[in-house]
């Protein structure tokens, strides 16, 4: 069945993304699916069934005439002639992804260095070298800021992807989709680990609070939080790169769109779920402020945030309809 779907997808690659075309596509798919299912039921092999269905499909030129699509196809071509879209090739897409990895790495490293830098002067009482500690801190911040600026320039040769109108063809899109899909578990792991690290970063403070080396706790807090943030930033920047590529095509491009258009909103499983999702963060903010002002323990009440973030993930998984 997948073969039939991609065949149809390829046949429609030259059509505009209008409602009429989408309807035609889904109706044709339905007919092909019916035929395919019946052939399989009658005991034919998968290959024979696919072959028969495709050979009896016909051609789209006839359809384009009858649907009055000739005009629409002309229109899209006209638009293309007016504001030509740059075709991004597979090679370019590959080097964009490679480059994106570099950008993500430097940005995440930069942020991590800035966060970690604070640990240097905290450590220094142990070694009785305050100046060294402070100097190290500024060196770290300097390097961190340098990395962040560098990451901003890292993708300047690919600026055209966001600044000009571009499009990708179907095979390139499926390449990007595959890459994205295989990165998805890595990203989930990175984000989870990152959040966990941020949540537990105060643990050393408690562990060392009764020992002689009290400063070790706060000194470790920053590197741990830094690594957590590194993981989150790195994986998010990378995944956003894939999404940028998949969003290049839209209604006006001649090839299909490969990413849900932005107007498709999150679907909730029920009205209650929608309400919960809507009031979640306001409630957290209120709780944080109330608890903090009542107790005046600001140094500890921030813990509400990481906990709320983890809970939000869990709640959203149960509230949002998945596409599959």
């Amino acid at each position: 069945m997948e073969t039939i779907k991609s065949y149809l997808e390829a046949m429609f690659a030259g059509m505009p993304n209008s409602a009429e075309v989408r309807k035609a596509k889904s109706e044709l798919l339905q007919m092909m699916e019916d035929k395919y299912n019946e052939l399989i039921e009658s005991g034919q092999s998968e290959n024979t069934a696919v072959g028969t269905v495709i050979s009896e499909f016909g051609n789209l030129d006839e359809l384009a005439d009858d649907l009055g699509l000739t005009r629409e196809i002309e229109e899209v071509r006209g638009k293309e002639a007016e504001t030509p879209r740059r075709q991004v090739t597979l090679d370019e897409v590959q080097s964009y992804i490679e480059n994106r990895k570099k950008k993500a790495l430097f940005l995440a490293l930069g942020i991590m260095l800035c966060i970690t830098s604070v640990a240097c002067p905290i450590f220094s009482p142990l070694t009785h070298a305050y100046t060294v500690g402070v100097t190290l801190m500024f060196l770290c911040i300097g390097a961190g800021v340098g990395f962040i600026i560098y990451s901003g320039f890292a993708d300047s040769e690919f600026r055209y992807i966001t600044k000009t109108l571009c499009q990708i063809d179907m095979s390139t899109a499926s390449y990007v989709k595959d890459k994205r899909r295989s990165f998805e578990p890595v990203r989930a792991l990175c984000v989870t680990l990152g959040v966990v690290l941020c949540v537990i970063c105060w643990v050393p403070c408690v562990m060392f609070s009764t020992t002689n080396a009290v400063v070790v706790g706060p000194a470790l807090l920053f590197p741990i939080a830094g690594i957590g943030v590194f993981l989150i930033v790195y994986s998010n920047v990378l995944i956003k790169g894939f999404d940028i590529l998949l969003r290049l095509n839209d209604r006006t491009t001649i090839s299909g769109s490969y990413k849900d258009l932005p107007d498709s909103e999150v679907q909730y499983v029920s009205k209650t779920a929608q309400t919960i999702a809507a009031i979640y963060w306001p409630v957290v903010v209120c709780a944080y402020l109330i608890v903090s002002f009542l107790t005046f323990q600001w140094q500890i009440t921030w813990i509400i945030w990481p906990i709320a973030a983890v809970m939000h993930r869990v709640i959203m998984i149960n509230c949002v309809k998945s596409d599959e």
Binding site: L28, Q30, M31, K35, E56, L60, E62
Partner: peptide
């Protein structure tokens, strides 16, 4: 769709198999 194409095929004794695109554009 598919039911109609199946009937055309059987009524015509398998002599005429209508293409999916032909059928849909006729609709």
């Amino acid at each position: 769709g598919y039911e109609i194409s199946k009937q055309i095929r059987s009524i015509s004794d398998e002599k005429y198999i209508i293409k999916e695109t032909t059928l849909y554009s006729a609709f």
